[in-house]
Amino acid sequence: MLTDVSRPLPKRTPVNAPFWEHADRQILALPWCESCGKTHFPPSPRCPHCLHDAFDWRPASGRATLVSWVVFHRSYWDGVAADVPYNVCLVELDEGVRMLSNLVGAAEEAPRYKMPLKVTFTDRFPDLILPVFDAA
């Protein structure tokens, strides 16, 4: 039986909206502080480094390194149940920040610690364009 697979949708707020608006256009973007010039992730209302409140959202390189990964064998949301087992990875972007994401393609087939990754986008979930990572 085919069952619809879905993911929880982002809870868009004024603080994280630019991230998801870029993702909708298949761009992985990061907030760069307009005062100190540093970036941070996940999005914050104030720069965690200097407390400034304005950011220049720019595309990231999309390059990352695999730090760790897990495979969920149980689901915590109804729509996810049909997708089990699925992986979640922890990556370090070349810009120095970390994010949680999913591995696809060759990286999903054979994940290796510290393997180089590149961002790609999946539209397999309803109403969601999600940045995920494949082998570089």
């Binding site: 760790s68 949301w77 949680l100 999913n102 999600l130």
Partner: peptide
């Protein structure tokens, strides 16, 4: 416990420990 990582399917404290243990 809704969070920023939900769209990637990441939730639960156990998963954090699983991630750390893999590393």
């Amino acid at each position: 416990s809704p969070g920023f990582w939900d769209p990637w399917g990441f939730t639960s404290m156990g998963a954090i420990h699983a991630m750390l243990f893999r590393e």
